[in-house]
Design a protein around this nucleic acid. Sequence first.
DNA 1: TATTGTGAAACAGTTCACAGCG
DNA 2: CGCTGTGAACTGTTTCACAATA
Lengths: 263, 263
Amino acid sequence: MQRNGRDVAGGARPEVPAEVPPADGVVDAPATIPAARERARAIPQAAVGRLAVYLRVLSALIDQGVTTISSEELAGAAGVNSAKLRKDLSYVGSYGTRGVGYDTALLVEHIERLLGLTRHHSVAVVGIGNLGHALANYDGFPSRGFPVAALFDIDEDLIGVPVGGLPVDRIDDVPRVCARREITIGVVCTPAVAAQSVCDLLVDGGVRCILNFAPVVLQVPEGVEVRKVDLAVEMQILSFLDARRADGLLPVIELVDGLAVGR
Amino acid sequence: MQRNGRDVAGGARPEVPAEVPPADGVVDAPATIPAARERARAIPQAAVGRLAVYLRVLSALIDQGVTTISSEELAGAAGVNSAKLRKDLSYVGSYGTRGVGYDTALLVEHIERLLGLTRHHSVAVVGIGNLGHALANYDGFPSRGFPVAALFDIDEDLIGVPVGGLPVDRIDDVPRVCARREITIGVVCTPAVAAQSVCDLLVDGGVRCILNFAPVVLQVPEGVEVRKVDLAVEMQILSFLDARRADGLLPVIELVDGLAVGR
DNA sequence: TATTGTGAAACAGTTCACAGCG
DNA sequence: CGCTGTGAACTGTTTCACAATA
């Protein structure tokens, strides 16, 4: 294909045809894989998250009628510095114009392609408690290309009840329904104890991407991606930053041995 | 200059005034500033997040009556490798026993201290829509030491209505109520357009830690920490990983390692 | 001229491997 | 002997600074 967004990655050799990847079953392929991977595309994971942010900012700018923007301005709007922004965009390709800036629409197009947003994604939410309920109704999902297409809960009283316009299905039907509706992303909002078994059911249903809100570490087979969102952990990180600041900005950690300084 | 919207808003930058990136030309003495900063926070940001996870795992283990655990076991339960775990714990101090392992209770005590959990924290949730409603009721906050002590919304019909046992207050009262109830953490769940002004009100009320669910980059004065949770961005990262895998070149093992789970 | 795109340098975080110790 | 704690090596990420160029 002519598109090159991915192998343009800076520093990468001119394109080398994608090496035949080892079959999925191969678990232990040792030394060779890293090399192949590096050649394939070296886009830092951290950059991927930021590209999603740029995409959101760009969409807003386009809505405001902005057609061109410099790295400096876009960086400001996205909360990063311009060098980082340019580096990130260089992973997408060379779509800027020197002396001018970037064409917003063009950039959106290429970032979307890179992020795989041209594919179809459907979301299943499992566990329709407080959080699941909120996510089932969360505008941000459908509006950014992630329609919620299935809801599940274990509570019989909820089965069939429409939430956000979609009826809740039985947990046991997860594999069947996910397969039938071609769910690509599963969101786990169950209590901790149920999360692993729900995750297993999603995997059975062919779901390979999981967003986990339950405070447990999910075990998944190779080839399944998990991202975790742990709200209490976020709070604790804030608590840490707060404590450090209140401690007068520095002395604590360095002298940890003494540990006394804490508080 | 702006903190990096996506991740943590790095620790308190020492003095580095916002504007002055060394003009081009000469690179100033490279060694001095980093040194000062290093002394301030010798504990990697990433490690802090993991410590919060270890804390959760340890609490569960203690509930099960486990009093001692090796780095290997704890690492397995937390989804990281043992070297990383030991390194992380070394930032807390030397509380293990060689040849034996760690005393679970002792470790919890010291991690809590490091994370500042011995302080009192109260949470305010602003924007009682779907998500705000869910968070106001979220067990994970109070159970981990973050009681929700104030709720705010702009909708007059909601004012006074109890949500999770707590009545909703007017947005305009944010500064007053936050100050009075000594709120330390503000959770922003408003629509994007309202987020910045709500954030400003929280800051006026003395809140120095903000957890932002709105899809915008908040501008805050120095000394205020912001963590962002962007659910659509999480989805897009999953989409990217999915697309990459589907494209062939899938060195999944390594990616999973770096991005989601240690394993 | 203004701004991108990018090597190279600096920095941050992770893993290795083994000394040190209970 | 087994397991922690950690310097050193390594890998990933950010920043710098400037050549290329519309």
